[in-house]
């Protein structure tokens, strides 16, 4: 039983990271109705920026908000410069843009910082939270920070006018325009916020998975699984899905001997396929019905 509880708690900690990635994916999906698979690479690039600032001697707690701010601006810029102009283009154009972004960020990071794996120190310290604790200091810190950020985001969408406008723009863009919401600006904000959340996930997970240009590949896959599980139309569902994926991943790795550490990633794919077969809209998602 102890082992079970330990694994669930540990699952929660990584689940928080998946929840962030899932949320980032869903926010962009809500804005443009495409899955941005460069999301992980954008987060990875942000993480490198953070590492660089740390290497230059900036204090960790200054690096955090600074990198998130830079990522926000970067996401907004990407939306304005490359996504906006192909707004009405077919799906394939979007796919090509995402592949391009993926390749650009991946190679740029390798070019600037090299492909060798870099350790990243944890701001929360090494070792167990307390002697015999189920999770380490870093995992605990990760969980606390993601919970705070996710709560702030929830409050933002629930209680602020900008948050309400962003939701309106994604639910019904035409009506949103008719009440005076600047839909394209809201989409830009969505990209900016998604990038900032991705940066947060990258910075938090870097001490665990180490820093290298491909570090976010598996994380993003888990994020996708979380987003699909919770429902691509529901930010809350995505967060929930992210946590569930984290827990399931940990439990499966522990209790199903065949899976172990190596096959863990396939759980994400298995989940995606299973959800799409059984409940395509996800746990909290709405099925979209299109009037023709």
């Amino acid at each position: 039983m102890d082992l079970f509880i330990h694994q669930v708690i540990a699952g929660f900690a990584t689940g928080g990271i998946y929840a962030c990635m899932a949320l980032a994916v869903v926010m962009i999906y809500q804005a443009i109705h495409h899955l941005n698979f460069a999301q992980g690479e954008m987060a990875m690039f942000s993480t490198y920026l953070g590492w660089q600032l740390l290497a230059w001697g900036a204090p960790y707690w200054a690096v955090f908000p600074l990198v998130m701010a830079i990522s926000f601006a970067g996401g907004l810029a990407i939306e304005r410069i490359v996504v906006r102009p192909i707004e009405n283009a077919p799906v394939l154009s979007h796919v090509v843009i995402f592949i391009a972004l993926f390749a650009i960020f991946n190679s740029a990071a390798g070019f600037i910082w090299g492909f060798t794996i870099k350790p990243v120190p944890s701001p929360f310290g090494e070792g167990a939270l307390y002697p015999g604790a189920p999770i380490g200091k870093h995992q605990a810190g990760m969980l606390v920070v993601t919970m705070i950020v996710l709560s702030l985001l929830w409050a933002f969408f629930r209680f602020t006018r900008v948050g309400l406008s962003m939701r309106a723009a994604s639910v019904n863009p035409e009506s949103a325009r008719l009440v005076g919401v600047r839909v394209s600006l809201m989409n830009g904000l969505g990209w900016g916020m998604a990038s900032a959340i991705g940066a947060l996930a990258g910075l938090l997970i870097a001490p665990v998975v180490f820093l290298e240009p491909n570090m976010m590949l598996s994380i993003l896959l888990y994020g996708f699984a979380g987003a699909v599980l919770g429902g691509l139309s529901s930010p809350l569902g995505a967060v929930l899905g992210g946590f569930i994926v984290g827990i399931v991943e940990n439990l499966a790795g522990t209790y199903i001997p065949v899976i172990g550490g190596e096959l863990k990633l396939s759980i994400a794919l298995f989940l995606i396929v299973a959800v799409l077969l059984v409940k395509p809209a996800g746990l909290l998602g709405r099925r979209t019905v299109q009037r023709v």
């Binding site: 309400l164 406008s165 939701r167 309106a168 639910v171 019904n172 949103a176 008719l178 009440v179 005076g180």
Partner: peptide, 18 residues
């Protein structure tokens, strides 16, 4: 053209967004 997943009151708030 209502905002289907938002509440009635949120819909009204949106009307006054400008």
């Amino acid at each position: 053209g209502t905002f289907a997943t938002l509440t009635t009151e949120e819909n009204l708030h949106l009307g006054a967004m400008t």
